[in-house]
Design a protein around this nucleic acid. Sequence first.
DNA 1: CGACGGCTTGATAAGCGTCAACTGAGGTGG
DNA 2: CCACCTCAGTTGACGCTTATCAAGCCGTCG
Lengths: 222, 222
Amino acid sequence: MSCKVRLASVCASLAPDELALLDSLAHPTSFAPKETIFSQGDTAQTVYNITDGMVRLYKLLPDGRRQIVGFAMPGDFLGLAMRDAFGFSADAITPVTACSFSRAAYSALIDTKPHLLRRLHDYATHELTLAQEQMMLLGRRTAEERIVCFLLAMRERWSKIGRDSVTIELPMSRQDMADFLGLTIETVSRTLTRLAKTKTILIVPDGVRLMDTQRMANMAAA
Amino acid sequence: MSCKVRLASVCASLAPDELALLDSLAHPTSFAPKETIFSQGDTAQTVYNITDGMVRLYKLLPDGRRQIVGFAMPGDFLGLAMRDAFGFSADAITPVTACSFSRAAYSALIDTKPHLLRRLHDYATHELTLAQEQMMLLGRRTAEERIVCFLLAMRERWSKIGRDSVTIELPMSRQDMADFLGLTIETVSRTLTRLAKTKTILIVPDGVRLMDTQRMANMAAA
DNA sequence: CGACGGCTTGATAAGCGTCAACTGAGGTGG
DNA sequence: CCACCTCAGTTGACGCTTATCAAGCCGTCG
């Protein structure tokens, strides 16, 4: 009941008694920056609900190339996209707190609570929609469009958890952004400076301030 | 019971009476090549289970750039990734047959059949895993790797529906492949001819034959 | 037979990657 | 207290992969 992200996560719309049951199964957990939460290929014995901080989710190729498939933020759920083994790795970017659940308990719970399963299913389809949006971005957008779309999407996500502002926090490194957007760190850096030079954004410590959202929206739509 | 793809789709693991119920709700539908099944933004009043043929699922940017987010084949389910409106467009590549269900009936059904919902949820998470694989491909792989991964993935999909062969049917056009792989039609064509010249594949009408799956697997893993 | 669409091939160019040097903030230790 | 190191980020020069533009091929169909 005291959870800050309850209404933004799958826990919304649970009855008080169900919430209590869920609470009894949850293990509060925390991770330091750069700490690994799980690795691709690990047998998935735990699922997590992020309550604070930011997590990067990524896949690696044997030669070291990395693709970040998403950033998890408060309210996000980790552990859906696998049957037995995690399909990607996850590690903390900032200090992270999460509710962890044993996979067995989680699995048993959703078998008895259809509407919790329904919430999870809705969450999964939402993730799928985001993934398809990202395919469009990676396959067909220019570097500048990717950056602009990313910033607007981050604004959207912060606002969904009650932190709406034209100043966007970006706790991840340039390398993380690059690996999310299918670019190099140099291209990310150059593109951000170019946007700053045209007064579209203002680069601030650990984030950017959006100075011309109208122009950005046009770039993203085009 | 006579459905060729029953065991490969969400309909597997249904009890006979449930199958009968589902059957009573299903409307057999068919589409001619290039016919639109639905368009991005349409209110989603129907969901589909493909029984034969191939469908392209794609998103468009206002300036005409296209990203194919997936190809639907027998056993695949269309209509998951939306709450009220379709997030992408779909049209038939080959002649297509499908079971269509009204969204209302579908929604009511899964509310009363938790294990059907469970199947759908598993299907959705599988789709999500594929989408993340595709992000890796689009963001970090070279043109040649994309083509090779695509061919191997198509082989895998055909084999899942009982058509395992080193000769891969490719009913879609070069343009469709290009828009799926984030390339241009010219790069797809050139890369395929290069693979053919090195005797890695053999280009045949409406498909390719894999001549050196070992080398291809190495390219895909790298 | 001619037109058309899908595909291939070639020449050229652009966007982004690569390599490398530089800057500035933060941390460490003599 | 300041020299030094480290690391993330920025900037510049250059080059490669892939896009773009353009021409030609081939099977199909009216």
